[in-house]
Design a protein around this nucleic acid. Structure first.
Length: 109
DNA sequence: CACCTGACGCGTA
DNA sequence: TTACGCGCCAGGT
């Protein structure tokens, strides 16, 4: 099991990063992958969230794609839930997407 | 083993 | 601006 800790480290870094996203802000999958030291591994981040325990305390809902859109089918329960959670902390949606210029964590102003 | 499917992102057309 | 193509790659069929 030589390499297993490499991926574990990446996973832990991503979890820590997600836990650091402040309420009212969002981060993109690719942004987190990059910050965790593995640019172009955005799908790995999505996979981690998918495998997250159902009642994790991590603010998984603050992670959306780089286009400012929620990565779930627009009518799904998960989509509704995520959008509701974000709106409840002030994240505004316009035409189904968030203005990343304003809400993305650690970017722009 | 081949082939498909994603909680993605970026460059092009 | 929307639509594709392609890179990436673990998991499921």
């Amino acid at each position: 099991m030589p390499n297993s800790h490499i991926d574990d480290a990446f996973k832990e870094r991503v979890y820590t990063l997600i836990g650091s996203i402040p309420a009212g802000k969002v981060a993109a999958y690719g942004q987190l992958a990059k910050l965790a030291g593995a640019a172009n591994q955005s799908r790995a981040v999505g996979r981690l969230l998918k495998n997250l325990p159902a009642h994790s305390s991590l603010p998984w809902f603050r992670v959306i794609n780089s286009q400012g859109k929620i990565s779930f089918p627009v009518a799904s329960d998960k989509f509704i839930q995520q959008r509701q959670l974000l709106e409840s902390e002030g994240v505004l949606f316009i035409n189904g997407k968030v203005n990343m210029k304003k809400y993305q964590w650690l970017e722009h102003s």
